[in-house]
Simulated scan of single mutants.
Amino acid sequence: MSGRLLNRVAIVTGAGSGIGLETSLLFAQEGANVFLADINQKAVEDAVAVISQRWPNVTATSIKCDVSKEADVKAVVDLAVEKFGRLDVMFNNAGIMHSADDDAVQTEEKIWDLTHNINVKGVWFGCKHAIQAMRKNPTDSEKGLHAGGSIINVASFVAILGAATPQLAYTASKGAVLAMSRELAVVHAKEGIRVNALCPGPLKTPLLMDFLNTPEKRERRLVHVPMGRFGEAIEQAKAVLFLASDDSSYITGTDFAVDGGISSAYVTPLGEPLLPPPVGLAPK
């Protein structure tokens, strides 16, 4: 442990699986007291048990949270501030990609509304209440703590590029997250509050694999990825750690792409072999 988040207080939404889970574990490993929020309470309770066993020097707390409900999000922030007197990192990660999401003709209004309530409203609620808490953060030089904080919102490479497989509600929602993050970064920069949007490429997580549920869909997505493979959640978590820590102290308002090169490519050569993930990044 390098202690890059030592004494910090962090909230992770959607912490029960995928990027959220890997980030929660990494935050705890780096010394943060972490609040794991997810609509699946059992999942975050299990994650807290792992953290408590591996890193007993930090405090991990599980809390059930539906990010589409402002009262739930506010309750998580209030709990963090009540318990530790501050909030340093807000990772707005919770999101959905519905299997019935399609193009403009086929996508039903209820799927559009559900997607935007979670992916856009949920991020807005997280930013709204995190900003109010971060404005009050006291500086504690002895512990290396300062005013302000870091907010990381999960957008996507589809906020920059159109998706080859139609997912209009998701794509539009992630474009909104990116635009929201940029504006908040500008508005709150002088308060010491940094806001960045993480833009993951295609990942080997349940969220995407459930959507790309046929070999044809998966191949359609990978043909555009220069690295020739789906990313791993831990690769995104390491980027989130960087954005949460003081290592990124002069970075705000970015579309931080961790995407295997997809946003730089037109199409990759046909017939190229798929590359395995680096050693140590295989699914656990």
Rank of each mutant, 00 (worst) to 15 (best):
K42A: 10
V154K: 02
L87M: 09
S24C: 12
A233M: 06
E82S: 14
G162P: 02
N119F: 09
D102I: 09
E82P: 08
V73L: 06
A185Q: 04
Y170K: 03
A163C: 05
D72S: 01
E232P: 09
E216T: 11
D102L: 06
I51F: 02
K42V: 12
A185H: 06
L222D: 02
S245C: 11
P278F: 04
P138H: 12
D103K: 03
L6G: 11
Q53M: 13
A282F: 15
A47L: 00
R221M: 14
G95L: 04
E30N: 05
G122Q: 00
L21D: 10
G148D: 07
L21E: 13
S24Y: 08
A164H: 02
V177F: 10
K64R: 14
D103E: 00
V34G: 01
F91H: 15
E235N: 05
V89I: 13
D78R: 08
T59D: 15
N137A: 12
D255M: 13
V267F: 09
Q106E: 15
W55G: 09
M1H: 10
E108W: 09
H224S: 07
R218F: 03
V81E: 10
L208P: 06
Y250C: 08
L161V: 01
T23M: 05
A37T: 12
G260F: 00
N92P: 03
D210S: 12
P56C: 00
Y170L: 08
R8N: 14
A159S: 10
T205A: 01
M97Y: 10
L6Y: 08
A43I: 11
V240C: 06
V123A: 07
K190I: 05
T115A: 00
G148Y: 12
I39F: 14
I160K: 08
I151Y: 04
V177T: 05
E108Q: 11
L114A: 14
E272A: 15
I63T: 15
K121L: 13
W124C: 11
F256L: 09
R135G: 11
Y266Q: 10
L184D: 15
L274V: 04
G271N: 10
A28L: 11
W55E: 07
K136P: 10
V9N: 02
R220S: 00
D88R: 07
E191T: 01
K174H: 06
T107C: 12
L21P: 01
V177G: 04
V76Q: 03
L26H: 00
P278D: 08
S52D: 14
Q53W: 04
A104L: 15
S52V: 13
V48S: 07
V48C: 03
A60I: 02
I131A: 07
R221I: 15
V154N: 13
